[in-house]
Design a protein around this nucleic acid. Structure first.
Lengths: 209, 209, 209, 209
DNA sequence: AATGAATGAGCGTTCATTCAT
DNA sequence: GATGAATGAACGCTCATTCAT
């Protein structure tokens, strides 16, 4: 599959990638057949397998590209920020904006989470993204700005917030990323900075079934 | 499908439901065929279609049951709690415990999120669960215990945290729900109670690409 | 694939087996598609895969049956013969007769020889058949009726003669097995009984490029 | 296809022929794609179709060359032999040696036997080879050295012996051609020279099912 | 003489669903 | 209630061949 492509070839590949991403996002991976894709692009079956070794590989390629792009957006956004807490905030905001402008890719990421096959690739990408943020969290802790805790876990909590808000308020309800950014940031920073005393589990009457 | 079932019939139905849930969770929805299920239970094809009109309906049934059970667990847990903030905390803890003891069902919920077909049913169930919690959040606001904001959005933020932590620390890494409960609660309550001043977006140099 | 079949099922299976054997023999394995077979029998695709796990398995099944049948014919033919040399002769004759009445199966065996995939099954079957004959050859040697030599090699020589004569005079030219039986037997017995002195390689002027 | 080739062109053609022969022999005709061949040689698709009109034609070309070479080896070997029986013996020996040193081509011949498409070409080549030997057999009969019979049939019997021994002892078991030559010659000459009296079919109790 | 891109019929196989018994 | 058999559309994929450059 290490194929040297001409300019025309790269263009075709892009066409397939873009059309497929759109289809996968709107119709789902399983409901989108290779035939759908090549008919949509207007080429023969062979073309598809000239550029991709399988439907699965195509999907993985889209997934990888999406994760790389999202990370780049985050990196560029925080590049000029020296303060770790600001960096986290700016990272959250830039993520929401990117996920807003690339809604179809968010749908793909959502789908991939629930699929055994794509889990590894997704976890790999997420590991990198999480490490980026966790480093800021750790720095914040060292500076006494963020309460003591497990940086990785806190990072996942942030990720959970941004993903869920994106899913519900942007993806399902068609809202704008910038509209929920303030709330997302407020909740996450509250979760990071908040004091331990708010934890009520010390109270004697708390029980869990 | 409104079928009056005998005791034996209900048992058969249960068998199919349980076996299918296990298979769907471990092997995935698409990789589990109706044939797999009926062979696993040891019955003929006709039996399957006697109890369920389609594979999809079977899955939806499992999904509905799971969501009802999760809600029941939460309701029972908070029944004795008068304080809204405590209720939220207890709700988070009971969710994590339930998701821990029903890992296979969590996998199903995860899968369903990414599938166009099961989105509506999932959103319907989630709507109810969210309304439950949002009521507590609202009450907390009225009592001045929780900072002002959109209760539904805050509830989704909580949901995002619990789901993500469950996915990563319980489902992927095989941890125990009770081990991450303190962190989840601390983050969420911090996010709910934290003051607005922590929001740094007021600072002049903050920009988002 | 260990499927309990009803009478009707066994009949269907037989239909598929017989039709496929005929097609494979006349048109070749690769040129006969699963679609050809099911259309020929007049059933749906699913039926094929209900009875056979793959086209390859179907072919192997036909192959196995053929080899078992051929061996049975030989065994029955020599059952009443006490003399090893007579047994060999009768074995040759019965083989030719069987290959004559089952020309399509001979074509399949011929094809299978040249195919990597079916080699093992074929060699397994041939091993058994060869062992049967080699035992007679050995006995003949012990009785001083057959010249000393490697029984297995001599058996393969016999096999080579019968196969080649079948291929050319029965299969290609449509002759009758009984018509060439005398010649085949004469040649093979000559090869088995002939004295060593006929080997001229001792002569000084014999050279091989 | 009657193309006037430059020296470089002939070289390319040879490269394709040799590489393809090797592949066909080791991987099989159907499992070797045109793409495999051109990638193995390191040229583009167009090159292939510049030298050969189809994959089938390429195979036929390899087949023809192999048969011509084998015949040449035999002819050269017997050139200095005046005695027909010696000629047959030397022919058998030289065949075994050639098939030993060209094992991959033997595999191709074996494959071609079972394929409808290549049968005619193979039969044509074999016809020539058989005629060569049959002439010697006939001469041997005229000289009273070989028992009376159908020269062509006896030639095919010889062919059957050499082919089967080559297949089993050289091709399958990796033995050396010269090691089985004595046995092959002994068996064949025995078959040719042996008296009619060894034919036991005259005995009253011989029956064939 | 040579290339990479494109074609598209055809392949073997799967599987949710229906049917006859 | 239950069975095994049957259906057939659809799938992902292959590959000999052709084409434009």
């Amino acid at each position: 599959m290490e194929r040297r492509l001409t300019a025309r070839g790269r263009e075709r590949r892009r066409q397939l990638l873009d059309f497929a991403a759109e289809r996968f996002a709107t119709r789902g991976y399983h409901s989108t057949s290779v035939t759908d894709i090549i008919e949509g692009v207007g080429v023969g079956k062979g073309v598809f397998y000239w550029y991709f070794s399988s439907k699965e590989e195509l999907f993985l390629e889209i997934l990888r590209e999406a994760m790389v792009e999202l990370r780049q957006a985050q990196q560029e956004a925080i590049a000029d920020e020296p303060d770790p807490v600001h960096r986290i905030e700016v990272g959250i905001r830039s993520s929401l904006v990117w996920l807003d402008t690339h809604r179809n890719l968010f749908a793909l990421l959502e789908f991939a989470v629930g699929e055994e096959r794509f889990g590894p690739a997704l976890r790999h990408g997420q590991k990198i993204a999480v490490a980026d943020v966790a480093r800021q969290v750790e720095m914040g802790m060292e500076q006494g700005r963020i309460r003591h805790g497990n940086p990785e876990l806190l990072t996942h909590a942030i990720l959970g917030v941004t993903n869920q808000l994106t899913r519900v308020f942007i993806h399902e309800r068609g809202g704008r990323g910038s509209d929920i950014a303030d709330d997302a940031v407020a909740f996450c920073l509250g979760g990071l900075l908040g004091q331990d005393k708010i934890l009520s589990s010390a109270l004697p009457h708390t029980t869990v079934r």
